[in-house]
Every structure is written in C-alpha cells, then in structure tokens.
Simulated scan of single mutants.
Amino acid sequence: MSGKIANNLGSLPVVFESGNGSVLTDINGKTYIDFVSGIGVNCLGHNHPALTKAIAEQAKKIIHVSNYYNSDKGLAFSEKLLERTGMDRVYFCNSGAEANENAIKIARKCGSLSDKKDGKAEGTRHTIVALVKSFHGRTVTTLSATGQDIFHNPVFAPYTPGFRYIPANDYDALKDAFDGTVCALLLECVQGEGGVNMIDRDWALAACAAARKAGAVVIADEVQTGIGRTGTFLASEALGINPEIISLAKGIAGGVPMGATLFRGVAAESIVAGDLQTTFGGNPLACAAGLVVLDELAKPGFLSAVTEKGDYIRSKIASWNLPCIKNIRGRGLMMGFDIDRPSRDIQKICLDMAGDGKPGLCISTAGANTLRFLPPLVITEKEIDTGLEILYTVLNQ
C-alpha cells in the first residue's frame, strides 16, 4: 500500500488498521506489542471500552462548536482538569507545539507587564531560558526554544529570537542565567526527545528559585511527561516546582488530538480576550475523551501501577547484563537506554519480528543510539514480558 503523505522521519514499513489494549494489528493480520502508544498519546491503549463509548456517544451529539462558545463537555473537562492540577485557568488547543506557543506568549506578556516605565510596557523582559537537549515542538518558535542544534536547520531560518540555553543539572549555569531581560524558565521535567534525560529535583528547585528571584515565571513543558506518564499526574509534582504555566498534550485525550496550556497566579491574571485563539481547541469530542482519561487515571492504584510497571521493565532489562546496553534511565513508563548500534536499525528489526503467528515490537528512538519506551499506561505484565522477549532476541542477534 502506498500513499502521497509528505515524508517526515521516514515512516516504517507497516500499515496498521486496528488495535486492542497494547497490541496493534496491521493490514496483513500481523500483530505487534506497542511500546510507543503513538509517542505517548494512547495512554489508555487501543480500543479502550470507556474511551470509545464516550467518543461515539459525543459524536452523535456535537463534535465542534468553536471557542466562540462553551460546551457542556468543555466546561466539565476544564473544571476537572484544574481541580486535578491545582491551576487557575486552562486554555485548550490542538497540540503540544501550540500549547508551548501559548505558554511562551503569556510568559512574554507577563514579562512586559512587569517591566513598565511611566505606565507603559517596555518590552525588554522577553528572554526565555530553556535547557540544552530540550525539545518543545516543530513550529518556528518552538524550534527556537529547543536546545538542540540538530533541530535548527538553516533552511527554516530566521528563527524567533529571545531564547538562551543552559545545561540541566548544572548549578554554575544558574549564576548568570537570569538577568533583567528574562521573563521565563522553560523546562521539561524529563527530557524526552533529547534522550530521556533526567532532571535532578534539587537542581530544578534551585533553577526555579533563581528564575522567580529575577521576576520570571516557570513553564513546565509536560507535553510528554504529563497525564500520568511518569507515575504522578504531572511530572512537576515529583520535582516540586509548582509552575506558573504548564503545557499538556499527547495523552490528554487518549488519542484524540488535543493540547492545553494551564496558568496560575500572575500568568492567569494577565490573559485577556484576544490573547489566545484557535479554531478547533476544546471541541466537545476531545473534551469528552479527556474526561474519560481523567476518570481512569483517578482510579485507586492506577498511577502507582505505572511506577511499578516502569520499575519492572527497567529492572528486567538491567538483569540481562547485555554489554550492548548502558545507562538505563527513566521514570514511570517513560524510559530509555543507550545501545552500541544505530537505534533506528533496532527499531526496524523489532518490527520485522512479526510473522508466522509471532508478534513484532513497536519501539521508539530518542537519538542515534538511544531506544525509548512509551507504552500505554494500561499495558499488562504479559504484554511487557512478550515485548521484552522480542527485544532481548533482537539485541542478541
């Protein structure tokens, strides 16, 4: 089967048509254990009964009204999400990049409002401090915020100015990072695309303290780490950083495209009509799906099980004692490790294991030699063991 989809990362040679739980099925009837979940999107797996029921029922009522108006599902979802996160306001959008764009806009507005002379905003407090090895999206501005040169392709230049980068977990870098031009610190609580890099809690607290001392707000990019992925509803909870702005997407609606930017304190108070707008954001279909996600994650033991499953996977891989594997890391069901061969090759070989009644394995990469796992949060131990058995076989070939 061929198509006319624009080339992106070079799609792998498989075409999926259905899924159930953490198992995908392609058009030839081959099955695959899913350790990717749509890059952390399908948090409740595939064909989740409560999720599919809610989507089907909402589709029969109303799918879209635009944010000129409110919907019953939009109001219900906003109230429940804010209650769960302790934030003051939420703005719904369509993707993680858009959620981060909104965060950047409002952070710069906060900086302008705090930098007034004779009652007028000076506009000099607009710099955003981001981290080396970060990733915040693929729009021109979110690429600018991304602290990886590999993403700064000169053919897309000029990039949005006003960003500087400091290494994570480097205390010396904090000494001169925050001056009178800085309006925000932007960080991922675990760096996903940058290689599943862990952020030290004490350093994160010190960085946030330095930012706030300089009059800046803190933005937590929780596009990949949020919605239970790391074993707490938000990864920023584990770091204890209490951001003024949070961006969410990926798993927020269980597979229906959706993003959200959450605000509290001065960031929430700064927003007026016209600052943010989007056509599809907060449509009732996505909000109906999001309500199911919140309800499922709130069930007793759900998030602790995410932590337990992640610990189990990492300990199992460590127990293999394979010389080709090093630096196993992660939190909850967001994890990665380095290998001594191209990660893209291993990704394809794991797919090719499907056939003769045996499943293949879907895995992700986060760098030339880093494998990344983002399985559905509902993955079973049996599915985990089957997937790891495939990986073990491939790495021993």
Results as ranks from 00 to 15, higher is better:
Asn197Tyr: 02
Leu239Met: 12
Arg229Gly: 07
Ala204Asp: 03
Glu222His: 13
Arg229Met: 13
Ala235His: 06
Ile227Val: 15
Asp221Ser: 15
Cys208Tyr: 01
Ala220Asn: 14
Ile241Leu: 06
Arg229Lys: 15
Leu205Tyr: 03
Ala238Ser: 10
Gly194Phe: 01
Ala204Ile: 01
Lys213Thr: 14
Ala216Lys: 07
Asp202Ser: 11
Leu187Trp: 01
Val217Glu: 08
Ala211Pro: 13
Gly194Pro: 02
Glu193Ser: 07
Glu188Val: 01
Val196Trp: 01
Gly215Val: 13
Trp203Pro: 03
Leu187Val: 02
Glu188Leu: 06
Gln224Asn: 15
Gln191Ile: 01
Ala214Met: 12
Glu222Lys: 13
Thr225Cys: 14
Val196Ala: 02
Leu234Thr: 05
Ala206Gly: 08
Lys213Cys: 13
Ala206Asn: 08
Asp200Gln: 05
Glu222Asn: 15
Ile227Gly: 06
Ala214Gln: 10
Val223Lys: 07
Lys213Phe: 12
Ala211Thr: 07
Gly231Lys: 07
Gly228Gln: 08
Gly240Cys: 07
Cys208Trp: 03
Ala214Leu: 12
Val218Leu: 14
Ile227Gln: 09
Ala207Lys: 03
Ala220Gly: 14
Ala216Met: 12
Ala211Tyr: 04
Leu239Arg: 03
Ala214Phe: 13
Lys213Leu: 14
Val223Ala: 12
Asp202Met: 10
Ile199Arg: 00
Ala214Tyr: 12
Gln191Ser: 02
Ala220Glu: 11
Gly228Ile: 10
Ser236Val: 03
Gln224Ile: 14
Glu237Asn: 10
Gly195Cys: 03
Arg201Phe: 00
Glu237Arg: 06
Glu188Ala: 05
Ala204Leu: 07
Thr230Glu: 13
Asn197Leu: 08
Val190Arg: 01
Arg201Trp: 00
Ala220Ile: 11
Glu193Asp: 09
Glu237Trp: 08
Met198Thr: 07
Leu205Trp: 04
Cys208Gln: 03
Ala204Gly: 06
Ala204Ser: 11
Ala216Cys: 14
Gly192Asp: 02
Ala216Ile: 10
Gly215Ser: 14
Ala214Asp: 12
Ala220Pro: 04
Arg229Ala: 11
Val223Glu: 07
Arg201Gln: 04
Thr232Gly: 11
Gly192Gln: 00
